[in-house]
Design a protein around this nucleic acid. Structure first.
Lengths: 363, 363
DNA sequence: CGAACGTGATTAAACGTTTAATCCGATCGA
DNA sequence: TCGATCGGATTAAACGTTTAATCACGTTCG
């Protein structure tokens, strides 16, 4: 069991079998004209030696690195693991590696991150843009994951439909007085979710919207949201646009003596990992990240294959390439349905008016 | 403002200035013998053209890709964002890109992920091993982030000291009856944390340990932990080895009518992003991931520089290279102190025996 | 004054792969 | 039987960079 001493290269296989390197390359790629018998022997030898092509050599020749860049608004975002994992799987399945980059929430850093990825020679970039940002035309193939209301080559979850889902669920449970909790109206995603919810809450259902950043701007960061009072005023369901806010609501209510789901229901969005780890487990709306990532990567690879490698003598220019040679973003708009995950924080509206213990909490 | 048409290459700068490509390369690298005047002109031209060297060409020649691999036990792990972000920063500062790989919790996948990274030509690998796994000698330079009790070239937080920190804090608050909550005793990290706590809890303080996986094996996954009963039996502090478990404990206690921190204290580990978003905010122990990542990357780059590129004719073998030519892992063991973050879930032990509302919760 | 030296630049090879162009026989059709 | 065709393999160039070896030339020293 001698450990692999040197990375075997094409010429080694070639000389060992008495053929040329080109033949070996062709055989392994299944491209040129190689006899089936020869091809078989070559594949066998390659397997025996544990041959793996040098990405560097290949990249240099083909102009393709087989690597995608993933730029995120903020790696520390709790949703990030889901995204990264899904993209990594999808990319890996498509034969690509994933290089990560962090915009650290900063829009300047975001463009810098993109440039750095390009310098590293990525073939394409998946961007989850900082909220409110639009991705201008950069030189590389790009796929954006955001919300369907983002223009450009976008794939995303159908946040609007997700909003409808959860609102309908609460309606079905009998709730008629809801509080929608969001963080910041600038976010396309949050707006879509809220919009979806609103679109269902017509007729005799009433609701109001609490934007946390507004509230904190007035009362200080990390302040109490005052949900207990809301509950006393008759709100029986708290629908947050993110599990994070749902968690905040849940703990604030529980700490104030409001029983969930007996006295009030709480729902979230995103199905973060810990949403089953809390008691009661959180009712939420799940993004099918696997599908989203798959579509994003598929769109990206399509773009990559369509565009000629950057520095290639193009003799007879195809009728599809633009003047600049940039890939024509086909601007596909795909949206993937979300799924309601029923757990324990949502329940039927209480029959009698909720009995909330008197005030007197410190802070 | 003509957009960069083609990626400029060395020879373009060279011909434009009437010198050879080698001189340009030397000037930009600051290596060979180039007159300061010439170097300046070259740098200016390079900047003007926005020249960026082709990683492919460089990698092929030097055998170095300037990319590190990051292998994680499970990308979906909530701690992952912190780790990934820190590693990405550190690597970026050191001039490296970061390629991610997911072991999906599976040990077989872990080795496969490592191999894939190697095939992609990474210069070194940072591994956060699946719990209980030992990283055997793979061909590449490796840095492991786990716990100090892991053998090999490791850097990690000082989980033991972190345990001491939080236990001492609870002692100082007057708690004498604690429940330590862990998930699985196989984890080095969790063991260290528990061990550190235990080491402080001597004398008249009593405690017991609850391993969640054991408990769930008996009562079903996601079951109630029975903390209310513990509280009634006199436990006043619940110290979890992870914020995740702390959150579970907190919500279970709150839902059962136990006031935190008035009736009981709860503490966690890791300072996950949402730990300030809950009410009351979670007292926890923070890992200095930035420093850990920095040290891991530093150790890795040192190893990389020390080891000769894989396929280089080594004529006069240095006296340091081993027979196999593998990098001699110097097996540094660095541990970075943790920091106690005081928030609202920990408070003084209640003066009178805790008044817990009667049982009667529905599951 | 010739040899040694130092400085600044050039030449050429090499990294490992892909691919267009080419070559060599053998087979086939006319 | 000759030319065209085709299958199967080879040759050679190219991708963009780095670097050891070399060169030209002016200076300095013995």
């Amino acid at each position: 069991m001698s450990a692999s001493r040197q990375r075997p290269k094409l010429t080694q296989i070639a000389t060992l079998l008495g053929v040329s390197a080109a033949t070996v390359s062709n055989a392994l790629a299944g491209k040129g004209r190689v006899s089936e018998e020869m091809a078989e022997r070559i594949r066998a030898k390659a397997a025996e030696l544990g041959y793996m092509p040098s990405q560097a050599g290949r990249a240099l020749r083909t102009g393709r690195s087989q690597v995608l860049g993933l730029v995120l608004p903020n790696i520390a975002n709790p949703l990030f693991p889901q995204i990264a994992q899904a993209i990594e799987h999808a990319a890996s399945d498509a034969g690509y590696g994933v290089l990560i980059a962090d915009s650290r929430g900063d829009v300047a850093t975001q463009t810098r991150a993109i440039e750095q990825l390009q310098d590293r020679g990525v073939d394409g970039i998946v961007i989850v843009p900082r909220r409110g940002t639009r991705i201008a035309d950069i030189g590389s193939p790009v796929a954006v994951i955001d919300s369907p209301s983002t223009p450009g080559n976008t794939v995303s979850a159908d946040h609007w439909q997700g909003g409808r889902l959860v609102a309908q669920h609460l309606l079905d449970l009998g709730h008629r007085n809801l509080l929608l909790i969001g963080n910041n109206p600038v976010s396309n995603v949050q707006n879509d979710r809220i919009g979806g919810m609103k679109s269902v809450l017509t007729g005799n259902a009433q609701f109001s919207v609490l934007w946390i950043e507004d509230h904190e701007a007035r009362h200080g960061k990390g302040c109490i949201l005052g949900l207990k009072e809301k509950a006393r005023e008759g709100v029986t369901a708290f629908a947050a646009v993110s599990d994070l806010h749902a968690l905040r609501a849940l703990t604030e209510l529980q700490g104030a003596g409001v029983r969930v789901p007996d006295d009030a229901s709480v729902t979230g969005f995103d199905d973060l990992t810990w949403s089953t780890a809390i008691t009661p487990a959180l009712t939420t709306v799940h993004m099918d990240m696997a599908t989203i990532a798959e579509q994003a990567v598929a769109a990206l690879t399509a773009l990559i294959e369509a565009a000629p490698p950057v520095s290639q003598k193009r003799e007879h220019v195809g009728h599809l390439t633009t003047q600049t040679g940039k890939p024509v973003a086909t601007a596909t708009q795909k949206s993937v349905p979300m799924e309601l995950i029923l757990r324990q924080t949502s329940g039927p509206v209480p029959s009698k008016p909720t009995e909330i213990p008197p005030a007197g909490e410190k802070q």
